[in-house]
Design a protein around this nucleic acid. Structure first.
Lengths: 211, 211, 211, 211
DNA sequence: AATGAATGAGGGTTCATTCAT
DNA sequence: CATGAATGAACCCTCATTCAT
């Protein structure tokens, strides 16, 4: 008499992952302000009580969700970076593109990132998590830029370039969030590529889009 | 013997402006989710009832606040653009810098922008207002870029450049929001200037920061 | 530059009458529970403040409204009674019909009567006013019944008959309130007349409706 | 060692019945206008939240309360009618008396009926429920009257008589509501009986109260 | 006499959390 | 491990009342 659909009990960690996924869907659908224990439970098709059972409080679930996104983000760019070999050009392009690859760059997740950013000024815990993840990423980008500038004899400040690159990344996310139809992931990559081609003309080819 | 206290009654529009200002402070301080009628009233040093008296509902106050920011933003760049003369270079630099000028670029207001962006996916009314204001700005930037690219013989797509420029603007806002101490308004302008110098080397001077 | 529509000021008593009329309309339209200072002021086309100016409080306005109805009711039946001459039959018919004559028996006023009756159990002030007016009326009816029973040799208790007659009156009001289309003032009078014909067959003619 | 306290949780329907009972008590004690979620919860000795948990809104609780009274009323007279046998006289007396039998004719419930009647003009939902219940009852009364009039050769319109009878019923309720001390249930039945004796002298005995 | 902006207590409702099952 | 009935604090909003004009 086993119900094949979903087991009544599940390993702790798997349940928690389900709930985090449900939280992401709920924030994307209803916004952070309108996300309640009830909306999350409904997305997860589980009862209300289960959230406090696994996360003690709504607040902790939200933090766990942000940590989930952060970890996923870090893992993604670190894996991509490791796979990119040792060439500065490859490394920089890879790092710059990773913001727009699939597991990271889904519209639901962008909505969640912005939801947390929107609350960051008033919530130190969010701000700390967000800053940290951004700092790590930008430090690596900066290091690659520094190397490329040194090799290529460019007249740029590596700190400025890395700041600009990572800023452009989150700025493009905003465009994708606000109007998914007008800017897709490939379009965003092209904006990034044009920026790199402009800053490092000897290393990155011009797209020639205008010809 | 002037009584410096505020009068018990005030012109309608002035009261509404006070309340919008108070809303901005409240969102910056507590976040959008934790901004209540009570927190706004406290910021305004007025009673709770006054918000429904002037705005009918909390929701309308929030929309009015977003409209206030939108209008202020549009007025700012349009005035700056009109004052910049007819030179493309001046115009582009002016437009690019206006994001970081004083009435617009206060940390409180950045927090409010991100708060609304964070709810935009689930609130069409916010998304519409935000998209519209961004589209107008970017259309003007794009037009200037198109002209500059044509004059200067650059190999850029003007749409891509304007998208990149405006994205970098909001991305830099995020950095300023998250860690005001590490990136100030002048630092942000320099990132922008370096981008322009990279893309349009014949028109914008290199900052030479690295020399 | 005289505004011919409505004088800005009016004699005290006239203003109060206007407000009571407006209260009756408001209760009929919105119910007693949903009648507010604002709805009354709107019905009267006057400002909100005027009610407290003339009646000190909403509660007093309501009491004044009930007193107005009571007085109007008493004046009506007393005048009719005085006009009816000295014949018991005429007197009884007149008293019985007065509930369904025009100034008294308007649907708006019936709604107000039932609104106050509905609150009477919990509001001694309403109950007292309502009881009193009913007692006076029924005492007079009872006296006429007593005389008629004595003269006509009927085997009725005059107290019971008068109780029945006045009860039928308010019961018919309920029917008229609930479904004005199905029972009008003439229909109600006929029910009353049939009752009288049944109880006092030697004095009141049968309507012969069934023949 | 039975714990006499009520259990923390209860079957859904039982809880709802408790809340409806509490609502009746609250309306009787405070009136409909002053009946709040808080007063009902206090009567039920439960928390405020439970009302929205079971009825979604205060409005629905009130409708459910009216439906409860309606159902109880209908069930009562239908059961009594079924038990009365097939004799017209028995049937009519039974129907006429049922208004004044115990489960129906409690002063608290009378207060609730009048409270809803008082709001009926402005609340179609109340009016519909009240009209319906009254129509059903009166239709049955009318049918019995029609039969009795036919059998007994009376010169009455059966519609008029049934209207008068049911009107007298609600009118007597008003007397009982306003002054419970002066008219009790037996007194009311006697008024009804005298009316029947007057209208149908060959079938209903005169009470002879006046002899 | 009359107005209407302003107040703030109290209304209905939501929802994070608890807990008996 | 999982549920969902129950709680009660806090939310948004209404509205009787006050008061400067």
């Amino acid at each position: 008499m086993v119900d094949s659909k979903k087991p009544r009990t599940a390993p702790k960690q798997q349940r928690q992952q389900e709930l985090i996924k449900a939280t992401i869907r709920s924030i994307a659908r209803h916004g952070l302000a309108a996300t309640t224990i009830a909306t999350v439970a409904r997305e997860a098709k589980l009862s209300q009580g289960i959230i406090n059972l696994h996360f003690q409080s709504k607040q902790r679930l939200l933090v766990a969700t942000l940590e989930h996104l952060s970890t996923e983000y870090r893992d993604s760019w670190q894996r991509a970076y490791a796979d990119a070999g040792t060439d500065c050009v490859d490394r920089l392009r890879t790092l710059a593109h990773v913001d727009f690859e699939k597991p990271i760059c889904e519209r639901n997740k962008l909505a969640v990132w912005f939801a947390f950013w929107g609350e960051s000024k008033s919530r130190p815990i969010y701000r700390k998590l967000c800053s940290q993840i951004d700092d790590e990423y930008r430090a690596t980008v900066a290091e690659v830029c520094r190397q490329l500038i040194g090799e290529g004899g460019y007249d740029h400040d590596w700190r400025t370039v890395s700041r600009g690159l990572s800023s452009m990344g989150s700025g493009l996310w905003l465009s994708m969030l606000m109007d998914a139809g007008r800017l897709d992931r490939d379009g965003a990559k092209q904006v990034i590529d044009d920026y790199l081609a402009g800053m490092f003309p000897n290393h990155f080819p011009s797209s020639g889009a205008n010809r």
